[in-house]
């Protein structure tokens, strides 16, 4: 089971690399667009569009990465008081829901991307970036990755549930 989890999370980690480099590119790009315009009055439309194009990979590939690194937000008013098994149960429920949400939105996003692909959609601004469907493809891709991370979390919660009860452990299995 652990091997499957590691394999799935390796995929998420790979996608995370793309997101991390998009992030670096974004910082450098926005800064250079500002400086180029201020000092040299140069302001190419495609480079301006690229600024917000880069949010797509960052945000959409980032969500499964954040989930993998447990950077998601949860309310712990009651969670902290549950037993180790109880927390595993909540984790299992959360993971199943993550799979459902990820799969549902990936499926919806696929149709949306397909529509854009059939139109060969590009920027409405002359001189803007073409291939807008590639940008939209991050929606199904990102949420499919979320579902994959959900599967990994699901297996991990199951492992926690099946493990012999040791009061101090149980939750540690996720970190």
């Amino acid at each position: 089971m652990l091997r499957i989890i590691n394999f799935l999370e390796a995929i998420i980690e790979r996608l995370g690399i793309v997101a991390r480099y998009s992030l670096l590119a974004l910082v450098l790009l926005v800064a250079s667009n500002v400086l180029l315009r201020y000092f040299f009055s140069i302001s190419p439309v495609p480079l301006q569009e690229l600024e917000w194009h880069l949010i797509s990979p960052i945000a959409l590939l980032g969500i499964s990465y954040a989930l993998k690194h447990r950077a998601d937000v949860r309310v712990d008013v009651f969670y902290d008081r549950f037993s180790a098994k109880g927390r595993c149960l909540v984790d299992l429920l959360g993971a199943v829901m993550t799979i459902a949400i990820g799969a549902a939105i990936a499926w919806l996003g696929l149709a949306y991307t397909e529509q854009s692909w059939q139109l060969m959609e590009g920027s409405p601004d002359p001189g803007g970036l073409p291939y807008r469907y590639l940008l939209k493809a991050f929606i199904p891709l990102g949420f499919a990755a979320l579902a994959i991370q959900g599967v990994a979390d699901c297996l991990r919660a199951l492992m926690g549930l099946m493990a012999p009860t040791k009061p101090s452990e149980g939750h540690e299995v996720r970190s």
Binding site: R37, I42, S43, V45, E49, P124, D125, P126, G127
Partner: peptide, 18 residues
């Protein structure tokens, strides 16, 4: 200036800002 006009202005040296 968005759109087609932006492209025309850009030809004349305008730095077009969206």
């Amino acid at each position: 200036i968005p759109g087609l006009a932006g492209k025309v202005y850009a030809e004349l040296g305008v730095a077009v800002r969206l």
